Amino acid sequence: MSQDNSRSTFRCIGKGSCGSVWAQNEFQAIKREDCHPERSVQNDFNMHRRLLEALEASRHLTKMCVPRCHELIQNDNTRWWDEHGPNFPASYSHCKTLISERIPALNATARQHLIQAFCPTERQEFVKSNPSDQDCLVRLYLGRRRHTARSERPSKLNIFSLRNFPLHLDQVELLGLDALPYAKIMAETLAVMHWAAGIDGNDVEFVLASPRCGDDSTTTFDSPSIGRHALWVLDFDCCRSMTPDEHGVEQACGAFFRNDPYYPRPNPANEGDDRLWLEFRRHFIETSRNLLGSDSELPEMLMTRIEAVAMEKRREQVAAASNHA
């Protein structure tokens, strides 16, 4: 696709494997199906709606933030494309397009703190004035550190962007944030996805962003470093239906490890990380049993399977390192 923006009044705020995302205004986002041919905004719409419906029925169990899902536009919707098509660059053709609530970016104070904490000095002025870096959503990686306890503190990255900024567990700690409340919301979200919505959660994202204005039905956080914020879950185009049985457990376990490392991971080598995992595990099982019934074995079966796979992966890594030594 050409990047001719001569007539564009919508602003591109992101691109991924499924498509490009555009800002219609400060409240709505437009996700076009114009990239990978095997990714589907139709499936994104269907799975998104299923999660929202399940959340309504499970609101007593969790207060997670999920964007509202407004409308799926087909490529032959003449009325919509006649009105809105000219707002895209001239070379962009009609395609399936998902209209949803725009997740509000972190505010200027939060962005300033992230720049000071993690951006290389020589790039700070550029990032502060770069319009793209105002679209600041922070991917929260509670399952990965940038370094181990035995290595030196990592140097700041030479390439830096606040758009989809990856915040690893060690950076969470450097910002003075308590990882546990976020881990609990992730556990609740995963339980609702699996057992209430019946979806595997494959390739969903968890981001820190500003809260929805005027909404007291979701959990918010406040901190000296990044101010008032919320944890949002988004991107459901790779999710698939799953059954509440052993086959579903295997499917959910596979999705857990295919995702970016948002969820805590079992890590006996780091006592603090393993404690976080155990709390995530406990909270997932508790929320799951509230949904399935206290006698259900599926929640613990899934957590035990994840621990076994994590152990297998560590053994493979150790063996690979030994072979290269």
Rank of each mutant, 00 (worst) to 15 (best):
V233P: 02
L234H: 00
D235T: 00
D235R: 00
F236V: 00
F236L: 01
F236H: 01
D237T: 01
D237R: 00
C238N: 14
C238A: 15
C239K: 05
C239V: 04
R240K: 14
M242R: 12
M242F: 11
M242N: 13
M242E: 14
M242A: 15
T243N: 12
T243M: 11
T243H: 10
T243S: 15
P244H: 11
D245M: 09
H247N: 15
V249N: 07
V249W: 09
E250N: 10
E250F: 06
Q251R: 13
Q251C: 12
Q251V: 13
Q251N: 12
Q251P: 07
A252L: 12
A252D: 11
A252I: 09
C253V: 12
C253N: 10
C253K: 12
G254F: 10
G254K: 11
A255D: 06
A255N: 08
A255S: 14
A255M: 05
A255C: 08
F256D: 07
F257G: 03
N259H: 04
D260Y: 03
D260F: 06
P261N: 04
Y262Q: 02
Y263M: 03
P264E: 01
R265V: 00
P266C: 02
P266D: 02
A269E: 09
N270G: 03
G272E: 12
G272S: 15
D273G: 01
D274S: 06
D274K: 02
D274Y: 03
R275H: 08
L276D: 02
W277Y: 09
L278A: 11
E279C: 10
E279N: 10
F280T: 04
F280E: 07
R282M: 13
H283W: 05
H283M: 05
E286H: 14
E286G: 13
T287E: 11
T287W: 09
R289T: 11
N290Q: 13
N290V: 02
N290A: 14
L291Y: 03
L291Q: 05
L292Y: 06
L292A: 09
L292M: 11
L292T: 14
L292G: 06
L292D: 06
L292C: 12
G293P: 07
S294M: 13
S294D: 15
D295S: 15
D295F: 11
S296H: 03
S296T: 05
S296C: 07
S296W: 04
